[in-house]
Amino acid sequence: MLLYLYEYTRKCGKTGEGAEIVVWYNQPAALMLQQFALCAGRCAHCLALIGSRFPRGRDGHGCGAGRDGAVSLLLADVGQPREDYCILQHSNRICVITLAESHPVLQKGKTIKNINYQVTAHCSRLQNKVSGKSKRGAQFLTALAPLCRISCSDGEEYTIHSCIRGRLMEVNENLLNNPAILQEKPSTEGYIAVVLPKFEESKIVTQGLLTREEYEGILLHRLNSSS
């Protein structure tokens, strides 16, 4: 399935001509990078849609992207203690949902057995159908809506939440056949899903999220509490 995800108009870095850049999300990451490097020219635009983490806070600085680049925001203790998420928000409101490095699923010794997008008896995220620029047919998510359930070989099961209120643009179906990429490349090919907040809510939905510095403070507090 080809999913229309992103369009951006500016002068191409290669030809100098104005062009509408259209990217289909199911293209290989390397091809997407090549297209953006030639047409958009800035690292935030080149990497945002495949989920690269940027090391700074809400202004996007630190990667040379400026204020219109992707921003890495974090959320701690979602649903259960230490179940943390990293939300990559781009300037066009698109949010890529990934697991933060401290999430239990990403810890050493964990092996993912199965990833299931069937969240209830009557609802599967794989049945999400999006069409047109208005994104008709997209499933609407609340912040705590389940995206999938991850079962590990040690018997533990983790419910992965949306974290963002908005429309579900897509889930990462590649995880079904290769769940290991979630652990190997959690912030790029191992992303969970893509969510688009409503325009009028795009700033509100991220107000409760944390900058990298704020999140590191939480990690330090956890470390001190356990010692």
Rank of each mutant, 00 (worst) to 15 (best):
L182N: 02
G132E: 12
V194M: 15
L2K: 10
S72E: 05
C123Q: 14
S102F: 05
E7I: 05
R93H: 14
D84F: 02
L49M: 09
V22M: 05
I192D: 10
V171C: 15
L141H: 08
S151N: 09
G64F: 00
N224M: 15
H221T: 02
T206K: 09
E7T: 12
L33M: 01
R212S: 12
V23R: 13
R212F: 12
Y4P: 08
E184N: 00
V130E: 03
K129E: 00
D84C: 04
Q35C: 05
G109K: 14
R93T: 12
S91Q: 06
S131Q: 07
H122G: 03
Y6S: 04
K11E: 08
R212N: 09
G60I: 04
K135F: 13
V130G: 07
M1G: 03
N174V: 05
E173C: 08
G190M: 08
C46W: 00
H122F: 13
W24K: 04
F36P: 01
T188P: 07
G137V: 01
Q35I: 11
S225T: 03
V130F: 06
R149Y: 03
E170W: 07
I204C: 03
S225D: 02
A19D: 14
G208K: 15
R125W: 01
E156I: 02
L223S: 12
P104H: 10
Q183S: 01
R10W: 01
D77N: 15
R10V: 03
L33F: 03
S91R: 06
T9S: 09
T206Y: 03
E20V: 07
M32E: 11
L209S: 04
S151A: 15
K108L: 05
N224R: 15
R149S: 02
I97C: 05
I218L: 14
T9V: 12
T111H: 10
Y158Q: 04
V22S: 07
E213I: 13
L38A: 13
L210E: 04
H161A: 12
V71S: 03
R222F: 10
N114G: 00
R82S: 06
Q35L: 13
A29M: 13
L2C: 02
R82P: 01
N26G: 10
L219Y: 01
L2N: 11
E214M: 07
A121Q: 10
E157S: 04
C46F: 00
E189K: 11
C46S: 01
L196P: 02
L38F: 10
V205L: 08
M1D: 02
F54R: 02
T111R: 14
H122Q: 08
E214Q: 15
C43W: 04
R53D: 13
N177W: 08
T206C: 05
E216L: 10
E189V: 08
